[in-house]
């Protein structure tokens, strides 16, 4: 059929944006392999993937938030708070099963708090979550008492570092989370409602959509995904440092926007988010290996965000403006 179709509907449907991201990832890998002898090793590949786990989970939630016309700049510190809760439970009796439950639970709870402020309190998401960011940062400091939470028992690590049928548990968790979010977004009324709200909250309300409920649920979903991310964080590092998650929100927003989700809401690409996360982590890792200090990582992320949004603004300004059309 020749008519314009809604795209990005399949589980892994790729369009121009996603293919260019894939090419960018491959190109970056080739360039870094030539530039650094330490780059193209299986150990380094594992490091990049390992470093992407939390960001992938959080990125899925951030995709939903941005698609709905929302945002959460406090998400990194939310992961920090969940990680502290997990660390405390783990430190107390070392029971990994309890620790697994705590993360998503605390995430859901903090998601409710964010939703209470932003949705029920009608504070614009960017301002409301910025306020929470300030509160939570101090909360992390107070809870940790100025010290790292370190030397946590290895029981959680042992549980989550295993493989099921040859697939590492983190990869499995990401696959399940991806599929669940995709199903919710593309195959349930909730997903339609979320995209309608992202397009125009007022029109969504006139269409009889329960706007408040949908927005509330989405902040809770993002919180749960962040709690799961915290679980993998604690399992991997077995400590919680003071600065935990400080660049995570920036990274997540950058990855999601790179992936083709609109900062204005109404359209998103889940596979784009995955590729955006991978590109970001590949760049950060590669730059480190060719000798760029890690201090520069947020600069790279920031420049990417500004570059992508600037590029889109220019494209949309052109009479052809095909970039923003027919994406959902």
């Amino acid at each position: 059929m020749n008519a314009v179709r809604l795209i990005g509907d399949g589980v892994f449907s790729m369009n121009g944006r996603e293919w260019s991201l894939l090419v960018a990832c491959l190109l970056a890998i080739v360039i870094f392999s030539v530039a650094s002898p330490h780059y193209a090793t299986s150990g380094n590949a594992a490091t990049v993937l390992r470093n992407s786990v939390e960001l992938l989970l959080i990125g899925l939630g951030m995709t939903l938030l941005l698609a709905m016309g929302g945002i959460d700049v406090s998400i990194g510190i939310v992961m920090g708070l969940a990680a502290i809760a997990i660390g405390r439970v783990l430190g107390a009796d070392g029971n990994p099963l309890l620790a697994i439950v705590v993360g998503p639970l605390v995430g859901a709870l903090l998601g409710c708090v964010t939703a209470a402020v932003v949705v029920l309190g009608r504070v614009p998401a960017i301002v409301g979550t910025l306020g929470l960011l300030g509160v939570y940062r101090t909360a992390v400091f107070v809870l940790l008492g100025g010290q790292w939470l370190s030397g946590l028992p290895s029981s959680l690590t042992n549980l989550l570092a295993t493989s099921v049928l040859g697939v590492p548990v983190p990869a499995l968790a990401i696959a399940v989370a991806y599929l669940a979010v995709w199903l919710a977004l593309r195959r349930t009324p909730y997903g339609l409602h979320l995209l309608a709200i992202g397009n125009s909250e007022e029109k969504a309300r006139l269409s009889g959509i329960p706007v408040i409920k949908v927005r509330f649920i989405t902040f809770v979903i993002s919180g749960v995904l962040t709690g799961i991310a915290a679980t993998f964080y604690v399992a991997t590092y077995r400590n919680v440092e003071m600065t935990i998650g400080s660049t995570l929100a920036l990274d997540a927003i950058a990855a999601v926007i790179l992936g083709g989700t609109s900062i204005l809401g109404g359209r998103c690409s889940l596979i784009g988010t995955v590729l955006g996360v991978l590109l970001l982590r590949i760049l950060q890792n590669g730059l480190l290996l060719i000798g760029v200090p890690s201090l520069w990582q947020p600069v790279v992320t920031g420049v990417l965000i500004i570059g992508v949004l600037g590029f889109e603004a220019v494209c949309n300004g052109l009479p052809l403006g095909r970039f923003q059309r027919a994406r959902a």
Binding site: N199, S200, K203, L206, S207, G266
Partner: peptide, 11 residues
């Protein structure tokens, strides 16, 4: 018209 431009006709 209270239509959502980003969704399909059927939706």
């Amino acid at each position: 018209l209270a239509l959502s431009e980003n969704l399909s006709i059927a939706e």
